[in-house]
Lab assay of single mutants.
Amino acid sequence: DEIHIHFNGVTIEFRGLTEEAKKALEEAIKRGASEEELKELARRLIK
């Protein structure tokens, strides 16, 4: 299970995320999180 985020022309790929983690990332994107914020969020979620 993986998710691809297209962000300002950059694709960020995450693997092994739970549904909750995906929802958290989607919410962050909707509120306009920066690419760095998304990566940091993903790091926290994957652990």
Rank of each mutant, 00 (worst) to 15 (best):
D1K: 08
D1V: 13
D1N: 12
D1L: 14
D1M: 13
D1I: 12
D1H: 14
E2R: 14
E2I: 15
E2H: 15
E2Q: 12
E2M: 14
E2P: 14
E2D: 12
I3C: 07
I3T: 12
I3F: 15
I3G: 10
I3M: 10
I3Y: 15
I3R: 05
H4A: 02
H4G: 01
H4C: 08
H4E: 04
H4N: 03
I5C: 12
I5V: 08
I5R: 00
I5F: 13
I5A: 01
H6Q: 05
H6W: 03
H6A: 02
H6M: 03
H6P: 00
H6L: 02
H6F: 03
F7M: 14
F7N: 03
F7P: 01
F7W: 04
N8K: 02
N8R: 01
N8T: 02
N8S: 02
N8E: 09
N8P: 08
G9F: 00
G9V: 00
G9P: 02
G9D: 08
G9I: 01
G9A: 00
G9H: 01
G9E: 04
V10Q: 09
V10H: 10
V10Y: 01
V10K: 11
V10E: 09
T11I: 13
T11L: 12
T11Q: 03
T11P: 01
T11E: 10
T11S: 03
I12L: 02
I12Y: 02
I12D: 02
I12H: 02
I12T: 01
I12K: 00
I12M: 01
I12N: 01
I12G: 01
I12E: 03
E13G: 01
E13I: 15
E13M: 04
E13H: 14
F14L: 15
F14M: 09
F14K: 02
F14N: 02
F14Y: 05
F14E: 03
F14C: 13
R15A: 15
R15I: 15
R15N: 14
R15G: 14
R15L: 14
R15K: 15
G16I: 02
G16T: 05
G16L: 03
G16D: 15
G16E: 14
G16M: 04
L17Q: 02
L17V: 06
L17P: 01
T18W: 05
T18N: 08
T18A: 07
T18P: 11
T18Y: 03
T18E: 09
T18H: 06
T18F: 03
T18R: 04
E19P: 09
E19W: 04
E20K: 07
E20L: 10
E20V: 08
E20I: 10
E20W: 11
E20G: 10
E20R: 05
E20P: 08
A21H: 13
A21S: 12
A21M: 14
A21Q: 11
K22F: 12
K22C: 06
K22R: 07
K22Q: 12
K23M: 10
K23Y: 12
K23A: 12
K23D: 10
K23P: 11
K23L: 12
K23N: 11
A24G: 07
A24P: 04
A24C: 06
A24N: 09
A24T: 12
L25D: 00
L25P: 00
L25H: 00
L25Y: 02
L25W: 08
L25K: 00
L25S: 00
L25A: 02
E26M: 14
E26K: 10
E26P: 00
E26W: 14
E26V: 13
E26C: 15
E26D: 11
E27M: 10
E27Y: 06
E27V: 06
E27K: 06
E27A: 11
E27L: 11
E27T: 11
E27S: 10
E27P: 01
A28Y: 10
A28L: 13
A28K: 04
A28F: 10
A28N: 02
A28P: 00
A28V: 08
I29N: 02
I29R: 01
I29D: 01
I29M: 07
I29G: 03
K30I: 10
K30C: 07
K30W: 10
K30H: 10
K30T: 12
K30S: 13
R31C: 07
R31G: 11
R31P: 01
R31A: 12
R31M: 10
R31E: 08
G32H: 06
G32R: 05
G32E: 06
G32D: 06
G32I: 04
G32M: 05
G32P: 03
G32V: 05
G32L: 05
G32W: 04
A33G: 06
A33S: 08
A33Q: 04
A33H: 05
A33R: 03
A33F: 10
S34Y: 06
S34G: 11
S34Q: 07
S34W: 07
E35F: 14
E35I: 15
E35C: 11
E35R: 02
E35D: 09
E36F: 05
E36D: 12
E36Y: 07
E36L: 07
E36T: 13
E36I: 07
E37H: 06
E37C: 06
E37Q: 08
E37I: 07
E37Y: 09
E37R: 03
E37S: 07
L38Q: 00
L38P: 00
L38D: 00
L38S: 00
L38R: 00
L38W: 06
L38F: 13
L38Y: 02
K39P: 01
K39F: 15
K39E: 09
K39I: 15
K39S: 08
K39T: 15
E40V: 05
E40F: 04
E40I: 06
E40A: 09
E40K: 06
E40P: 00
E40R: 05
E40W: 05
L41W: 02
L41V: 05
L41N: 00
L41P: 00
A42W: 07
A42P: 00
A42F: 13
A42D: 01
A42M: 10
A42R: 00
A42T: 03
A42N: 03
A42Y: 11
A42Q: 03
A42H: 05
A42S: 03
R43D: 14
R43V: 13
R43L: 14
R43A: 13
R43P: 05
R44H: 13
R44D: 13
R44F: 07
R44G: 09
R44A: 12
R44S: 13
L45S: 04
L45P: 01
L45C: 07
L45N: 03
L45W: 08
L45G: 03
I46W: 01
I46K: 04
I46L: 08
I46V: 09
I46N: 12
I46P: 05
I46G: 08
K47C: 09
K47M: 09
K47D: 15
K47R: 09
K47A: 13
K47T: 14
